[in-house]
């Protein structure tokens, strides 16, 4: 089997699955309350865009997810680098981060609603905490496990702390972060949607909650598809960034 034609086989299998699903729904084998036909899901999706009702929700979710992602990347990197390069800070921060990593951090969502309200703040905070802990460990490990030979190479060439950060630690950490960026994007959207699910007035999570309370499975599946599509598009973007910036890896 040619690996180049893999996408073609996958597409055919996907279309076949949708076809079987549609046929089963038409034949009445599936209860539309639980499993609506693909055509109904597509119609719900079309309506969301045709009526224009989706845009404020999309903007809310994207703003929260990307805001949390950006702040999480910056703060996670800063904390991870400081902890790895300053033993005292590492000693104080590592247990806190390990504790935060040990619990499913989405349990903090109700607390963030109390702290930051039902607006975008609590969603950004949840995305941030999910991303920041991941990036903290990524950077911390990236610096701690940097190839000692490269450090010694730069030191023997006369490089000081600045040169080490610029030439060795920086590029090494960027490689680690880019390797985990897809996971971070997924975490950021998880935080935003779960936050909206808990308490919100708009956003894809809010719409999901609405669809659930009105037993609208078609709308729910349409929203899930929408989230998947946008996250996959962001994965494509991070993949492109990874290929471009990590060209040296081949």
């Amino acid at each position: 089997m040619s690996p180049k034609a893999a996408w073609l086989r996958q597409a055919v299998a996907f279309i076949a699955l949708i076809g079987v699903w549609e046929a089963c729904a038409d034949a009445g084998y599936l209860n539309p309350l639980y499993m609506p036909a693909p055509s109904n899901v597509a119609a719900a999706l079309f309506q969301l865009f045709a009526q224009g009702t989706i845009w404020p929700h999309l903007i809310a979710t994207f703003s929260a997810a990307l805001g949390g992602l950006a702040v999480g990347l910056v703060i996670g990197t800063a904390l991870g680098a400081t902890a790895a390069l300053t033993p005292l800070v590492g000693e104080l921060l590592a247990p806190v981060m390990i504790a935060l990593n040990a619990v499913p951090r989405v349990v903090l969502a109700p607390l963030f609603v109390i702290w930051f309200g039902i607006g975008i703040g609590s969603k950004v905070a949840l995305s941030f905490i999910l991303v920041a802990v991941l990036i903290f460990f990524t950077v911390f490990t990236g610096i701690r496990e940097v190839d000692r030979r490269l450090v010694e190479r730069v030191v023997t060439l006369g490089g000081g702390r600045g040169a080490l950060l610029r030439e060795v630690y920086g590029p090494s950490v960027v490689a680690w972060i880019l390797g985990n960026l897809k996971v971070a994007v997924g975490f950021a959207f998880t935080g935003a949607v779960v936050g909206e699910f808990v308490a919100a007035t708009k956003g894809l999570g809010y719409l999901l909650s609405f669809a659930q309370s009105s037993y609208n499975a078609a709308l729910m599946l349409a929203l899930v598809l929408l989230i998947m599509a946008f996250v996959l598009a962001l994965f494509g973007l991070t993949g492109w960034l990874e290929r471009r910036l990590l060209r040296w890896r081949g």
Partner: peptide, 22 residues
């Protein structure tokens, strides 16, 4: 060194130039 210990993210030219820049 025993290992060449070149920076993997720098080209051959950039690796050589690094010694001079430092």
């Amino acid at each position: 060194f025993q290992d060449d210990a070149l920076l993997p993210w720098r080209t051959a030219e950039q690796n050589v130039a690094l010694g001079l820049r430092l």
